[in-house]
Amino acid sequence: MIREVLKDQRGHVRAAARPPIAAAHLRKDAWWALPLTTFVVLTAFIIYSTWAALQNAHYYVAPYLSPFYSPCISKSCVHSTFGYGLPDMTFPVIGVLSPAFLILWGPGLFRLTCYYYRKAYYRSFWLAPAACAVRDVKGGYSGETRFPLIVQNFHRYAWYVAVIFIVLLTWDALLAFRFPDPRGGTQFGIGIGTLVMWINVIFLAGYTFSCHSCRHVCGGHVDVFSKTPARSSLWHVLTRLNEKHPTFAWLSLFSVGLTDLYIRLVSMGIIRDLRIL
């Protein structure tokens, strides 16, 4: 044992080596189950959403628009979010790759830099660490101090973008009450698809407004709450929401995928949308 005496916490005998225990971990529980599940579910979502985005078809069936393709930003779109007069963008990106790719970067970046998803994928994909008190698989770790991971710190910009999407998707969900009237024009109605779109937008809003950056920007930056009562109460509400952030992260992931799937299947004629009203 090396004896090295510290200047001001002297005499504390400093041991040189860690406990000679070779095992990478001593856990006896199924610690691998959670990261494995996360890996499978996230991978499945990425595969499905990429496939769905590549389709460039079956994303609209009146009055429902898939969240993967909202907003419509080109004349070639089978549905118009902002009414008419959009540019007829036919350059290759859209023509070949479908407009979904012009849209998905927004919500995608929000999820990619999300504090909760970072935990989820650093654990399940990076294995850094896969579970608590389980040794990291790789050496040479630099955390979020270098490019590209340092960019994670700009999560709040992704949040600003995500808020815009909540507005757009809420608009889409409102339009989902306007069914085509066989006599021409539109009529008010509610279908299963309307409910699906509303559930999706609620989960997405829950996810977006329970965000850590949102909590900080809206009040967390304040040092003396009693001097800013409005921001203080907002922060308290967002804090309660923030505790549910992981739950909303998963619920909204499922809801956005399933909403697209539902509209896709209806549009393809595989299932029929039931009108409730």
Binding site: Y115, R118, K119, Y122, R123, W126, A128, P129, C132, A133, Y141, S142, G143, E144, T145, L149, I150, N153
Partner: peptide
């Protein structure tokens, strides 16, 4: 303090 090295995998909170 090197807070940038933290990748918020939350084991500290868990234990």
């Amino acid at each position: 303090a090197g807070v940038g090295l933290c990748n918020i995998t939350k084991c500290c909170t868990e234990v």
